[in-house]
Design a protein around this nucleic acid. Structure first.
Lengths: 185, 185
DNA sequence: GTCTATACGAAGATAGAC
DNA sequence: GTCTATCTTCGTATAGAC
């Protein structure tokens, strides 16, 4: 279906722009320029306007991360390593210019709806991380806080890496998170 | 000197807006509305335009945090507790709507100069944190990575807290960071 | 589905009067 | 130092033709 093709292409383009430039700098003009999507069909595909594209981009990224977290059983250390490697790929693939779409929308949100959405997505990620850590043998009562420190640590690490244009803080954070989790054994 | 008064008031107002609304949503109109500063003297006080106000706001916050980190000698746990309490105050004082100015500018930066600036400020914070941890007795070789995980963890925790409108993720992260640092003893 | 044209508002920035 | 007026650019959004 060609309708979905254009729509999907625009959603992915929006996610890319949100990751690198932030919420306010992500405009339809930018999305069209990046994707080559037809100018005349913007509001055909997204009658809800910008908020609708952004919402879809957040959901798209949210589900992508979620399915990556729903893998086979791992050790706690492997959970961190995989999750860390995933975000490292985002950084490297964007020349250290990109970050997390959900965080970008949270920081730039001007409506309560977008905030609720990012809150829900972060909540899903935290639940999935906690479940993975629990399957890996981490004590149940600590899984939620471990999930929080892992997600928060990586989100913050991406900001530090973008600002410093260096992977050093990111790798430092991953190493310390691994240490924290190894102490569980 | 009245010139500095207005200028300082605008810088503080800009920091407040950057914290809550992000970089692009922080405009001169908003700053004037918030501070009651005279409209006609914007470019008198800031000939460099918006970038100059933002730069000053980042420096202002940067130095504030820096001086808070340069306190007397503490234990590693106390370093985390103090640093965490500081950011918690920011969250609570903004009704969980505000965050870190430096992170907000990093994520929304559209110029290399602003990115360099936030990179430098984060670098100063990391150095100060590492030094505090070292004074507290942490092994020298681990101080940089410990500083990175503490700063990144808290930066990320603020994002999670803003999105979820709850202090739970923030407190979870602080608790886990304390555990990590207590293992040093 | 895609186009052009257009309305509307907001932002950054400058010029020149007071 | 502060004012108003103005320019320009850009973003969102709508209407109506093809």
């Amino acid at each position: 279906m060609s309708r979905s093709d254009v729509r999907q292409k625009m959603i992915r383009g929006a996610a890319d722009l949100l990751s690198r430039r932030g919420l306010q700098a992500t405009s339809f003009s930018q999305i069209l320029e990046l994707t080559g999507a037809p100018r005349g069909s913007v509001y055909h595909h997204f009658p809800g306007g910008k908020d609708e594209v952004v919402t879809e981009a957040v959901r798209y990224v949210g589900n992508g991360v979620l399915s990556a977290l729903a893998t086979e059983d791992l050790t706690p250390t492997e959970v961190i390593a995989r999750f860390g490697a995933m975000w490292r790929t985002v950084l490297v693939g964007s020349d250290l210019r990109g970050g997390c779409v959900v965080a970008a929308v949270t920081v730039g949100a001007d409506s309560g709806e977008l905030l609720s959405l990012t809150g829900a997505v972060f909540g899903e990620w935290l639940d999935a991380l906690a479940a993975a850590l629990h399957r890996a043998g981490a004590p149940e009562s600590r899984c939620p806080s471990l999930a929080a420190v892992v997600l928060a640590g990586l989100e913050g690490a991406m900001v530090l890496t973008r600002a410093s244009r260096s992977l050093e803080p990111f790798d430092d954070v991953v190493a310390e998170l691994v240490r924290l989790v190894e102490a569980l054994d």
